[in-house]
Amino acid sequence: MAHVDPSAPLEGKASKETERKLKRESRTQIVSFVFMVFITTTAFLTVASDVIPSGFAIPFILLLASVQVIMQLYYFMHMNAKGTGWVNALIWGGLFVAAMTVAALMLLIGITKY
């Protein structure tokens, strides 16, 4: 592997083990997709129905959103895989700064405006 031509087409098939792993993975991904469709629908129905009081609905849909985002990150984007320590640090660092930004902006704009 001293000189590898990166533009050469990759030949051969994935190994038996890789195939098995990918088959298992696509099953996991379909299950998480169905689950995400389910929680999205739940969130929409919670707001659309008049029976559920908004005092319960607001924290509930925010919780559902967090669950879905974590599923996207860890299943669809594979942040649960091995060797993703830095990736986790970067994204959670970003989310940490973003959360402080949201809190600061909400509070500051509210105070100066009213």
């Binding site: 660092g93 970003g94 973003a98 930004t101 909400m106 704009i109």
Partner: peptide, 25 residues
């Protein structure tokens, strides 16, 4: 791969500031 995640961390902050502005206004 790693640099792209670094970029996505920055994008998170970009959208965070837009969300904060929207929620305030």
């Amino acid at each position: 791969y790693l640099a792209f995640w670094f970029f996505l961390g920055g994008e998170t902050v970009l959208f965070g500031s837009l969300f904060g502005t929207y929620l305030g206004l």
